[in-house]
Simulated assay, not measured.
Amino acid sequence: MRDLVRKAMDARLLDLLGLWRAARDKDAVMDAATLFADHADHLLVIQAEAAGNRYTHYGSAFARHFGADLTGCVIDVLPTDVLPPERRGMLEFEYTFARGADRPIWRSYTAQFDGDVTETWQRLVLPVGENRLAVGAYPVEGMGANGDDGATLLRLVIDRVPVVLDDDGGIADLALSLRAFCDTRLQMAELEVLATRDALTGVANPRHFHHLAGLELEHARRMGRSFSLLALDIDHFKRINDTWGHAAGDEALRAFVGSCVQALREYDILGRIGGEEFAVALPNTGLDGAKVIAERLRRLVEEMVVRPARGEIFDMTVSVGVASHSFGHSPNPEGGVMDVPELLRRADKALYRAKDSGRNRVMTAEG
């Protein structure tokens, strides 16, 4: 098995594994930055802390490919446009397994990098003591392995399931069986839906909305960009429940969400805050752009017709409050820290003015 690994593993990762094994054999204290200095550009060093996994070293190759230097960043709270949810789950599993098993984890992954170029990278996760991991990763050419069927098959395996290596550099085990891997992914997906989604409408629940909006707000703060929030409230919703029943009210909420999705962009974040109240986070969007989106949403809801399973058809309208902030250009006009609750408070004040002005309209936060 060791010879098969040597045929299938990228030569640079073989060197990294050899350095790790030599230090391990001598029971040496592993200073990853010094031990793996020749691989610094393609190396990550990760420290587990109470706040999550933190990059204490982030190789320049990753900064070039992903467009940002994440040294010092906590992986668990990175914005979704920097670390998509599917890759976040993969990394969390690998890092937790490697620390718990105290064994190297080897795998490959294929993704789109800068310029929408699809590349395959092999990565090696190495435990280096005191809740620290060193991760080396290099791009590889295709899936071939010099005509060796066994090595080719092994490369196909590591593209799907992480492989655990033993102290001699051979294969100790698979981190997951293929069936367990599939079952776990399905279970994780189901649990994520239950924990993060509103059961009736399928959009983000309040906790998850605040989490996602907070990530995007922090990203806007770091990049000096604009960020906006919409506060939405369906007009006279109690009248719908009282006239046509709660089942019709539920259908109205689902239809309302459908109209919102049509009005919003793919990366906008829609959440149900409570009852007939919703909120939308608009990343990288200033006040003028937010007003355009809010008006488009209001118009689509106004044109919507709800056809409940029982009862007469009816229409709906929505009132919208808009709040926006541009980091690096304007301070918070009311003082204090600009965060999601503060922006939502300002959007709510604008929403109340829209209600007081006759409903079915968009109003912006003062200041």
Rank of each mutant, 00 (worst) to 15 (best):
A37I: 07
G275C: 09
T110W: 03
R197G: 04
A248Q: 00
V340H: 00
A309D: 13
A350S: 07
V261R: 13
F278Q: 01
G258P: 02
A247Y: 03
Q187H: 15
E49D: 08
E276V: 04
L215A: 11
F66V: 09
L35Y: 08
L43P: 01
V257R: 01
F237W: 02
L191D: 08
R160I: 08
R345G: 08
T80H: 14
V340Q: 00
A204E: 03
T152N: 05
G150F: 07
F181P: 00
T243N: 03
T196E: 04
D148P: 00
E312F: 04
N205G: 07
R197D: 04
V292Q: 06
A213R: 03
I158M: 07
D339L: 10
T184M: 11
S330H: 15
Y138D: 05
V140Y: 02
N53G: 08
D315V: 14
F113W: 14
N146R: 15
R12C: 05
M304I: 06
R132G: 07
R107I: 03
F93Y: 15
H329V: 10
E119R: 15
R179V: 14
D116T: 14
F209K: 08
L300I: 07
R87M: 15
T243V: 05
Y267M: 09
S326P: 00
R221D: 01
I269N: 01
R155N: 14
R99S: 08
M304L: 13
A40R: 11
A61Q: 05
V157F: 04
D235M: 06
D198N: 03
P333F: 07
R160D: 06
L17V: 04
D250S: 11
R123H: 15
N205K: 03
T184R: 13
H39Q: 09
L91H: 08
A111I: 08
E216V: 05
K7N: 11
L217H: 04
S108R: 03
S259Y: 10
D242Q: 03
T34H: 14
M188R: 15
D356F: 10
R103L: 08
V5R: 01
W20N: 02
V320N: 00
A347H: 04
M363G: 00
E192V: 04
A199S: 15
A172I: 06
G358E: 07
A51L: 02
L297I: 12
A180V: 14
H57Y: 11
L215H: 06
R88F: 12
V362H: 00
V5I: 14
F113I: 13
L344C: 11
S326N: 09
V125H: 03
R12P: 01
I158G: 00
F181V: 02
G289C: 10
L44T: 05
L174G: 02
A252T: 05
L212M: 13
Y138A: 09
F181H: 14
